[in-house]
């Protein structure tokens, strides 16, 4: 598949790869929200973790891991860049169409941007749930 420059760039130099601890550790951390979306059978799984300043509600750091194609890796890498420094509500405002536009994703790869948006929502929902914020109506995306 012939990809655009930005996808290749994110694929070759993915930003913010990693996590804030093992699966068990992050489960216990109230300042970390975890989103795990996709399924191995479908060929892509994204794990997005946000570290939130519990005082200000600002996302201070974000990390990802991704099992998936080049577009999935680039979409989740971009998502971490965009999340840093945003409030939770600003994070929720990120739309998959913006990711498509920024990376010039080909039509067959739109689902990768949708998955990245799902991951963002799931991570924020997890954080909110851990901190008892709001009656979260969207946490269905986490599982």
């Amino acid at each position: 598949m012939a990809y655009g420059e930005k996808i290749i760039d994110h694929y070759e130099k993915p930003r913010n790869v990693g996590n804030f601890g093992t699966t068990d550790e992050v489960k216990k951390r109230a300042d970390v929200g975890v989103g795990l979306v996709g399924a191995p059978e479908c060929g892509d799984v994204m794990q997005l973790q946000i570290k939130v300043n519990q005082g200000t509600g600002v996302i201070e750091d974000a990390k990802f891991k991704c099992f998936g194609c080049g577009s999935a890796i680039a979409s989740s890498s971009l998502a971490t860049e965009w999340l840093k420094g945003r409030t939770l509500d600003e994070g929720l405002a990120i739309k998959n169409t913006e990711i498509v536009e920024e990376l010039s994703l080909p039509p067959v790869k739109i689902h990768c941007s949708v998955l990245a948006e799902d991951a963002i929502r799931a991570a924020i929902a997890d954080y909110k749930q851990k901190n008892g914020i709001g009656a979260e109506s969207e946490k269905a995306t986490a599982h």
């Binding site: 699966t23 979306v37 399924a39 191995p40 059978e41 891991k65 799902d118 599982h143």
Partner: peptide, 17 residues
């Protein structure tokens, strides 16, 4: 990572899409 942590991937409830 999950494999190394000893998590059985077949037992995880994945969000199929």
């Amino acid at each position: 990572d999950m494999h190394k942590e000893g998590i059985d991937l077949s037992k995880v409830e994945w969000a199929h899409h």
